[in-house]
């Protein structure tokens, strides 16, 4: 019995987090459900129209079929509808297109998420690494020319949203100098295998990755600079200097590693934010990712797909928050005691 209470006390923070995460997930699902209720028009009728013309069946029959396929019946009581909807979600059914029965959210995610994650995670990790080095250097050599230059870069790069950087890059490298391709993920003429294909994929990803990174490097560098300035005031840095340890080793082993720690948390959370992709960036580069699909289905007013995609993105964010919080509570006992 004592073992159980002590286990509970140690992991109490985690259970609380789990409860909050679960509650948030339920609310997110309810929000997704209300989205369909809020939308103009009736999805079942729209879908029934499609089925009627497609299969040449009478409207009543088509409507019954539509209700069944969409897992949604506007004639039932609202709580029953919600229950059915959540039941579908628990079985991994995120939703089906209102216009084309062969398109489901699960299939969309399977087909387009890899491309989205490819360009966005490459740019996230690239800019994280560059930003870490830039930020720690800025903090170490404060008030130098390097810091001034870096700060100017950060202000200018941060002033233009990443999708506009995308347009600028297309204009400069794609149209003026014709160095990089500006559309799609790879040449359709190429075979779907081997090194040439892989190189072609990387070649096509160059501009989108650059556009993401230009802006992100600046914000990582800025956080790293702030974190490093905090670490520089700590005793062990003074002690290391007093012992005559070479500067390079202080920066590499003492400063950067310690200042990086809080940023790893934001890295994990930013990673969770990538799962939706960026509608604007992917539309500008015509890159077949989830974000581009999202805006395309948005334009077609296909709300079931939209609902499913939003739920998917939110689930990933809630999950990442839970994981980060739990790991943090394991590492840092101070968090366990507070709240």
């Amino acid at each position: 019995m004592r073992a159980i209470t002590s286990f509970y006390n140690k992991t109490r923070y985690f259970w609380r987090r789990l409860l909050i995460a679960f509650l948030t997930l339920v609310l997110v699902a309810v929000f997704g459900f209300l989205l369909i209720k809020l939308m103009p028009g009736n999805p079942v009728d729209t879908y029934a129209q499609t089925l009627m013309t497609e299969r040449r069946i009478p409207f009543e029959e088509a409507r019954a079929l539509a209700k069944q396929m969409l897992n949604y019946d506007p004639d039932e009581k609202i709580l029953v509808q919600l229950g059915k909807y959540i039941y579908g979600l628990l079985h991994g059914n995120l939703g089906i297109s209102m216009r084309r029965p062969d398109i489901t959210v699960n299939r969309l995610i399977a087909g387009f998420l890899p491309w989205t994650l490819f360009i966005s995670s490459v740019s996230l990790f690239l800019s994280f690494i560059v930003g870490i080095f830039m930020g720690s250097h800025m903090a170490w050599k404060r008030k130098g020319v390097g810091e001034k230059a870096a700060l100017s870069y950060i202000v200018v790069s941060g002033s233009i949203p990443d999708y506009l950087w995308g347009m600028i890059l297309i204009f400069v490298f794609g149209v003026r100098f014709r160095i990089f391709p500006v559309q799609g993920n790879y040449d359709v003429m190429l075979e779907y295998e081997g090194w040439p294909w892989l190189l072609n994929v990387l070649y096509h990803a160059a501009l989108p990755v650059l556009a993401y990174s230009i802006v992100q490097i600046g914000s990582w560098a800025l956080s790293m600079r702030a974190s490093s300035i905090g670490v520089l005031g700590d005793d062990y840095i003074y002690a290391a200097r007093a012992r005559g340890i070479p500067e390079r080793i202080i920066v590499n082993r003492y400063l950067r590693r310690n200042a990086m720690l809080p940023l790893v948390t934001s890295l994990a959370l930013s990673f969770a934010g990538l799962f939706g992709g960026s509608s604007l960036m992917e539309s500008i580069f015509n890159y077949p990712g989830l974000g581009q699909q999202f805006s395309a289905f948005m334009g077609a007013r296909d709300y079931f797909i939209i609902q499913g995609l939003i739920l998917f993105m939110s689930f990933m964010i809630v999950l990442a928050n839970l994981v980060v919080d739990s790991i943090y509570s394991l590492i840092d006992p101070r968090i366990r005691r507070s709240t």
């Binding site: 948030t24 934010g273 960026s278 509608s279 999202f294 948005m298 939003i310 993105m313 964010i317």
Partner: peptide
């Protein structure tokens, strides 16, 4: 928490 968990730009589009 709910508002922070649902990504803003997609919601704006909706």
């Amino acid at each position: 928490n709910l508002f922070l968990s649902i990504p803003s730009f997609p919601v704006l589009l909706i």
